[in-house]
Amino acid sequence: MEVISGKVAKAKKAALYGPEGIGKSSMASQFPRPVFIDTEGSTTELDVNRLPKPSSWEMLKQQVQWVKQQGSRFGTLIIDTIDWAEMLCVESVCATHNKKGVEDFGYGKGYIFVAEEFGRFLNLLSDVVESGIHVVLTAHSQITKFEQPDEMGAYDRYSLKLGQKTGSRTAALVKEWVDMLLFINYKTFSVAADDKGSKHKAQGGLRTVYATHHPAWDAKNRHGLPDEFPLDYGYISHIFSGSTQPVNPSSASAQTTQVPVSQPPQQQQQHAEPAQATVSELNPNIPQSLRDLMVQHKVTEADIQIVVGKKGYYPQDTPITNYATDFINGVLVGAWPQVHQMIKDFKASLPF
C-alpha cells in the first residue's frame, strides 16, 4: 500500500448561490479560463466562452462530457445555474416514465428517481474535476422554514433553490458534493424605524460573501476563508490559481479536442458530407430538444425514421413532427445514446 502525505493539488468543486442579479455569474466568470453551460440564458451580457443553451438533460450531459475531453483548453466548467439544470433533470425523468410531473409517481418515488439521476450527473462532474478542470455551480437562493429537532420553534433561513418540495434530495446532494459553498447576499447594516416606531427600513446593501455555516444560511469551505468578505474574486483567487493535475494523467493525455461524435469508417467518408447537408435542412417544427441532438450528432430525419420504423413504433414514412410529444421526449431524447447507437449500427450494416 502507498501512503500519500501532504496536500494534493487537484481541481476544486464550488457552488455560489444567492438572490437573482447579485453577481454570481460575474464572479464565476473570473475563475481560471472559464467555459459556461448557460442553462437559463443569463450570460448574454458577459464576454465569456459559453456552450449553447441545453434544450434537454441529455444535451447537458453531453456538453459536460465534451468539456472533459478538451484537456487543458478550459480551466473551469461553470453550470449556470444548477437549479435550472435540475428542471431539465426532472423533465427527463418524468418523460422517461411517462409522467406529467414528479408528484405523479406517488409515495415520493419521483424524488428518488430524480435524486438518482442527479447523483449520476454529479458523478459526471466529478470526472471533470478528476481531469484537472474546476467545476463551479451557480444557484439561486430561497428562504425556507427550518426547525431544529432539539429546540422549540422554527425560523427562516437561506438555502439552495433546489427541490423545493420536502421529498426532494438534490439540495443535500449538492451541499455534500462541493468542497466550497458560498452564500452571496446584500448585507444589512442596520434597521431604522420612523418617528412613530411603526415602520422599519433596512439600511446598507454591500454585496457580501458568507463562507461559513450560520443558522440563517448554508455555507462551508475547507480553505480557512474568513466568515464573510466583500464580493471580490480576489479573496478566493489563491485557491484556484495553483496548477492542477488530472487524477490519472495517462488517461488525460489520450483525450481528444473534438466533439464526441462518432466518425464513419474510411470507406464511408464519402457519404458524410451529403448527410451533414441534410441535417442543416431539418424541419424547423421538430422539437428543439431532439433537433439539437440531431444537429450535434449529424443525424438526419431519415435516420430517425428508419430506426423508429424498425422498432415498430411508427411506420417508416411517418414524419417526425407527427410523433407523439411523450414519445419524442421519453424515448428519442430520453434514451438518445441508445437511439444514436442503433443509427450507427444500421449505417455500419449498409453495403457501400
Score class of each variant (00 low, 15 high):
Leu60Met: 00
Val279Arg: 07
Pro52Tyr: 01
Ile328Gln: 04
Glu20Val: 06
Ala192Ile: 15
Phe240Ala: 11
Trp336Asp: 09
Thr318Asp: 09
Ala192Thr: 13
Ala192Lys: 15
Ile112Thr: 12
Arg207Thr: 13
Gln69Thr: 10
Val67Phe: 05
Ser72Val: 09
Leu51Ser: 00
His297Ala: 08
Ala85Lys: 00
Ser126Lys: 05
Thr96Ile: 14
Ser280Trp: 09
Gly6His: 01
Lys344Cys: 12
Gly234Tyr: 07
Gly23Ser: 07
Gly204Ser: 14
Asp104Tyr: 10
Lys311Met: 13
Ser190Met: 13
Gly330Ala: 09
Leu182Met: 07
Gly205His: 08
Val307His: 10
Ile343Gln: 05
Thr257Tyr: 09
Ala252Pro: 03
Lys161Asp: 08
Val64Pro: 05
Pro246Lys: 03
Lys109Asp: 15
Tyr186Phe: 15
Lys145Gln: 15
Met180Pro: 03
Phe105Ala: 06
Gly101Trp: 10
Ser72Met: 10
Ala193Trp: 09
Phe121Thr: 04
Ile328His: 04
Lys13Gln: 04
Pro52Ser: 01
His213Glu: 14
Asp218Leu: 04
Val128Pro: 02
Lys311Val: 12
Ala216Val: 13
Gly23His: 05
Gln63Pro: 02
Arg50Thr: 04
Lys161Pro: 07
Val178Pro: 02
Ile286Asp: 01
Gln245Val: 13
Tyr107Asn: 04
Val90Pro: 01
Glu40Cys: 08
Phe240Arg: 08
Ala115Thr: 05
Tyr313Ala: 14
Ala216Tyr: 11
Leu231Met: 12
Ile133Thr: 05
Trp66Cys: 06
Glu91Tyr: 13
Gln263Arg: 12
Lys13Asp: 01
Leu181Ser: 00
Phe146Val: 13
Gly108Asn: 02
Lys187Leu: 10
Lys201Thr: 15
Phe189Met: 15
Met27Gly: 10
Leu88Gly: 00
Ala324Leu: 15
Ser55Pro: 10
Val247Glu: 15
Ala202Thr: 14
Glu281Ser: 13
Val128Asn: 01
Val129Arg: 13
His238Tyr: 13
Glu58Gly: 07
Leu173Ser: 06
Ala202Ile: 09
Ser159Gly: 10
Asp326Leu: 12
Pro287Thr: 04
Gln65Ala: 15
Asp127Arg: 11
Leu137Tyr: 00
Ile22Tyr: 10
Thr256Arg: 14
Lys298His: 15
Ser42Tyr: 06
Ala272Cys: 12
Val128Tyr: 03
Ser253Pro: 09
Gln263His: 07
Pro215Glu: 05
Ile79Arg: 00
Pro351Gly: 08
His340Cys: 07
Thr44Glu: 15
Leu46Gly: 06
Lys99Val: 03
Leu173Ile: 00
Pro246Trp: 00
Asn285Gln: 11
Ser262His: 14
Thr325Gly: 08
Phe31Arg: 07
Phe146Glu: 15
Gly312Tyr: 07
Gly132Glu: 08
Thr318Gly: 04
Val339Tyr: 08
His213Ile: 13
Asn322Gly: 08
Ile304Leu: 11
Arg169Gly: 00
Thr318Leu: 06
Asp80Met: 02
Thr76Tyr: 01
Val90Lys: 03
Ser5Gln: 13
Glu151Pro: 14
Asn283Ser: 05
Val93Thr: 00
Gln258Ser: 11
Pro34Lys: 08
Thr257His: 14
Arg222Ala: 09
